[in-house]
């Protein structure tokens, strides 16, 4: 086993080009999976690549360095469009996890229940990947291929999550359902990004649902059909089976597929109401 702790992105990329090491960032998923087994193979610990941490506003987008922690997200002064992302950030494990777990780690671990993914989907986030030879950018929805699977190539490093500057007036919301208050792995979660007028009419909405499919999904048909509805109407009733067709919930230790299906519309409605609450 070799352990590498690069201090520059370039040296990290060189290493990635040379061999195919396991990349460790926050390590909050790495160790639980390891258990008492021996750490083997080549490990590249990118936690000291300080250039990859931090949130900055660029001319047409926001740049979240891949090592930005969830605590960084919670504490950042961000527009209301990011309220859903910030709400999700505050529910990624406990404070101890949020202090070290990285945004990119949450995405690259590709758990169906990754808290960060639904809000990032609603924000139309892109993933920036660099290798020693090229930089490429792709939508997060294309990047995550399935349960624990991404499009990252062995020589690539996720360097940032890029969010197009959200339009004025757009607000984010996030709701997570579990059987306890803190430290919840979601039964279902929903993220919304909506433009709601002062009367409560939805001008536009983006909705994503997590923990109900191998990869969290945007519900584009629902997004389309919600335009013109009022946040004060019983939104739950306007969500039909066809709106949820992209989901494929399963039975697991946390809940049955049937329950997930039953409460998904409720979570979506709550996430939308959360948007309205942020606005007021």
């Amino acid at each position: 086993m070799t352990y590498l702790l690069p201090r520059t992105i370039e040296s990290a990329l060189e290493t990635l080009a040379d061999r195919e090491p396991t990349i460790v960032a926050g390590a909050t998923d790495y160790y639980p999976a390891l258990g008492r087994r021996e750490a083997t193979g080549d490990i590249i610990d990118i936690s000291r690549l300080d250039d990859l941490r931090g949130i900055s506003r660029r001319h047409d987008h926001w740049r979240f360095g891949s090592l930005t922690t969830w605590t960084d997200v919670v504490r950042a002064d961000l527009p209301e469009a990011f309220a859903g992302l910030q709400a999700a950030a505050s529910e990624v494990g406990g404070k101890q996890i949020q202090n070290v777990a990285s945004m990119a780690g949450n995405v690259c671990n590709a758990s169906p229940a990754a808290d960060g993914v639904p809000p990032l989907l609603t924000l139309d986030a892109d993933i920036e990947l660099r290798s020693a030879t090229q930089t490429r950018v792709m939508p997060i929805g294309d990047f995550i291929l399935g349960n624990r699977s991404t499009d990252r190539q062995p020589d690539e490093l996720v360097t940032a999550i890029l969010v197009p500057t959200p339009p004025d007036g757009v607000v984010g919301g996030f709701e997570k359902l579990g059987a306890r208050v803190y430290l919840v792995i979601s039964i279902v979660m929903a993220a919304a990004l909506a433009d709601i007028d002062p009367h409560g009419t939805i001008r536009s909405a983006r909705i994503a649902v997590g923990a109900c499919s191998p990869v969290a999904q945007r519900l584009t048909k629902l997004e389309h059909d919600l335009v013109g509805s009022s946040i004060h109407d019983p939104i739950v009733r306007s969500i039909g089976e066809d709106h949820l067709a992209v989901l494929s919930p399963i039975d697991d230790v946390r809940a049955s597929a049937a329950y997930r299906t039953a409460v998904t519309p409720v979570l979506i409605a709550k996430a939308l109401r959360a948007c309205a609450e942020v606005e007021s």
């Binding site: 926050g26 790495y30 610990d45 202090n99």
Partner: peptide
């Protein structure tokens, strides 16, 4: 100064 889980922290990164 920040609380973290020591069980999830590789000592090598703590230089």
């Amino acid at each position: 100064g920040d609380p973290v889980c020591a069980c999830l922290t590789p000592v090598g990164r703590l230089e």
